[in-house]
């Protein structure tokens, strides 16, 4: 049986892992390669590396990092953050990334999804969507949630699928950082209206939140950062508890 995936997300700045609450008060959290290997050892199903650095050398640093991670890691990983062209994706995949995640660049140029999936295959194109509930409607936001758009979450997600996106990584900005659980209603609607896997992100605080997002939210995978980084939830323990409640997970 296909299992539900647990995905820790590592924020990367200038080639180092950083930890922080809502991108504030970032502290150095060590070597991404070592952290990645430790997560793999603890039972993570996949990893996401999100590059939040803004330097000009970003591309090269990220490509080098991907190579080092691929050398060490025996589980799949996705790389995201500022990816906007076929060339960007080409070098990351060549260096050993399994998937790339695109966000703002896809909204600005939706054709990019078609181009990337035609060239590299849908399976390695994750489209990340940040959205926020405004007057009862889920509106897509860009640039790490800073720039609102008129785009409706569900319409955009369906367009992403039509254009060849392989997975949707949906972050609810209303839930992100709250530790009060995932946006399960919106997630369930995405899962019902789309035919590609949905990754839930934003709001993980305790084990029950993962249970809820897999059952009520119908998510295929759940992503979290701080609860894993600050060891509030241990991955193995999380998976054992999920397994005890009948949710299929890899242990």
């Amino acid at each position: 049986m296909l299992t539900k995936r647990i995905i820790p997300c590592l924020d990367i700045k200038n080639g180092r892992t950083v930890k922080g609450i809502n991108f504030l008060d970032l502290i150095d959290a060590g070597d991404p390669v070592e952290l990645a290997a430790a997560y793999a050892e603890q039972g993570a199903d996949e990893l996401v590396f999100l590059d939040i650095s803004a330097t000009e050398e970003k591309r090269k640093t990220l490509a080098d990092l991907v190579l080092k991670v691929a050398e060490k890691l025996n589980i799949p990983f996705t790389v995201g953050g500022g990816i906007s062209s076929i060339e960007d994706v080409d070098i990351l995949l060549k260096n050993g990334a399994d998937k790339v995640s695109i966000n703002s660049s896809a909204v600005k140029n939706p054709q990019l999804i078609n181009q990337l999936s035609a060239k590299f295959g849908s399976q390695c194109i994750v489209v990340a969507i940040d959205a926020k509930l405004i007057d009862g409607l889920w509106k897509v936001h860009l640039v790490g949630g800073k720039v609102p758009t008129d785009l409706d979450l569900f319409e955009w997600a369906k367009e992403v699928e039509r254009r060849g996106g392989g997975e949707i990584l949906f972050t609810s900005m209303d839930h992100d950082g709250t530790k009060n659980g995932f946006a399960n209603e919106a997630l369930a609607r995405l899962s019902e209206e789309l035919n590609i896997p949905i990754i839930a992100s934003g709001g993980a605080g305790k084990v029950e939140h993962f249970q809820d997002t897999f059952i009520k939210g119908k998510a295929d995978a759940a992503l979290a950062a701080s609860v894993f980084h600050f060891k509030e939830i241990e991955i193995l323990e999380l998976k054992q508890k999920l397994n005890n409640t009948g949710i299929p997970v890899r242990i």
């Binding site: 049986m1 299992t3 539900k4 035919n195 896997p197 295929d220 995978a221 890899r250």
Partner: peptide, 27 residues
């Protein structure tokens, strides 16, 4: 079904030495 199938699934009825020391229902 959701397509692509992405993630960890199990393998069973394992045969040949390709799967030597690999458990039934391994992920």
């Amino acid at each position: 079904l959701k397509v692509p199938q992405i993630g960890w699934n199990t393998i069973k009825n394992l045969q040949t030495s390709l799967f030597q020391d690999v458990s039934e229902n391994e992920y």
